[in-house]
């Protein structure tokens, strides 16, 4: 706490020294406080340690897990299901979005259907996929693809609609082929939207993958959490939840990195403009 008040005091006296390390240092402080709280609450008996073990116990359980083959198999299964579902949703969403978005009549005809299908919660499909595929990987895949497909499709549609009509007409008067128009006019305009769609879809896909594992019992980290919880392995449950959270953070970081890399040339990312 002394460091906190010291830091706060320094900030108050010397406003806005925009150093890069300050947010990082404060962020580390925040993480340290959270970990300290997780350690202190059960140790001081404020929360029953049968329900919330101290952080050190979780960490020890996690370290133990990291040496087992099952843990890495489950992690691999989760990541594979997530990546495969996301890839299918991206491919289908981009293809459908570019085709539908480029043809005004098609766009007008499909608008209401998309608006209707999109908010249908993908978990509504759980009973159906359980009947058809049981607790196997395709069950999770269907849910992941359904949920993330709409995120991508809607963003691609926005992107294609954003194409400057003058540019499009110019390309047409220069007799660009249809393929060349898509490659040189539509795609660069839609790219930022596609990347946004990717970022949204990446986190939705992870939610659905974990849900399918937890609820249906598709092999993966979600199922491990369910098993640990129902067998009363409390520290293990929390350790696995932490792992899933870290994967979620990594997915976000990865998505943002992809965003920056794919849009190097775009004004929203370029620093030199």
């Amino acid at each position: 706490m002394t460091t906190l008040s010291a830091l706060a005091g320094r900030v108050a006296t010397r406003p806005a020294p925009l150093t890069k390390s300050r947010p990082a240092a404060l962020g580390m402080l925040g993480v340290a406080l959270a970990v300290g709280l997780l350690e202190a609450l059960p140790r001081l008996g404020i929360v029953d340690s049968r329900f919330l073990p101290p952080f050190s116990t979780m960490a020890r359980s996690l370290a133990g897990q990291l040496t087992t083959a099952e843990f890495w198999t489950a992690t691999g299964q989760t990541l594979r299901g997530w990546a495969l579902g996301l890839a299918i949703a991206m491919a289908a969403g981009i293809a459908a979005g570019v085709v539908v978005g480029s043809v005004p009549l098609l766009r007008a005809l499909t608008a209401s259907t998309i608006e209707f299908l999109r908010p249908i919660p993908s978990v509504a499909l759980i009973p159906l996929v359980v009947l058809i595929y049981g607790s196997e990987m395709p069950s999770a895949l269907v849910l992941v693809v359904y949920a993330s497909f709409w995120q991508v499709l809607v963003q691609v549609l926005y992107g294609v609609a954003d194409v400057d009509p003058v540019v499009r007409d110019t390309a047409r008067s220069y007799r660009f082929s249809r393929r060349a128009v898509v490659r040189t006019v539509v795609w660069p305009t839609a790219m930022p939207y596609v990347v946004t769609g990717f970022r949204l879809a990446a986190s939705v896909a992870l939610i659905l993958e974990i849900t399918a594992e937890l609820i249906i019992g598709v092999p993966g980290l979600g199922r491990s959490i369910g098993v640990a919880q129902s067998s009363g392995a409390v520290a293990e449950t929390y350790a696995l939840v932490l792992v899933v959270g870290v994967i979620g953070v990594l997915v976000n970081v990865l998505a943002r990195a992809v965003e920056r890399r794919a849009l190097r040339w775009h004004t929203s990312v370029r620093g030199d403009l």
């Binding site: 300050r22 947010p23 404060l26 962020g27 580390m28 402080l29 925040g30 993480v31 406080l33 959270a34 986190s203 992870l206 939610i207 974990i210 849900t211 937890l214 609820i215 979600g222 959490i225 696995l240 939840v241 899933v244 959270g245 870290v246 994967i247 979620g248 953070v249 997915v251 976000n252």
Partner: peptide, 17 residues
Amino acid sequence: EICEPVLEFLRAVPPPV
């Protein structure tokens, strides 16, 4: 700035867990 990383972590945890 103190809360940001912790909140980012909490948001990244898929809610069903």
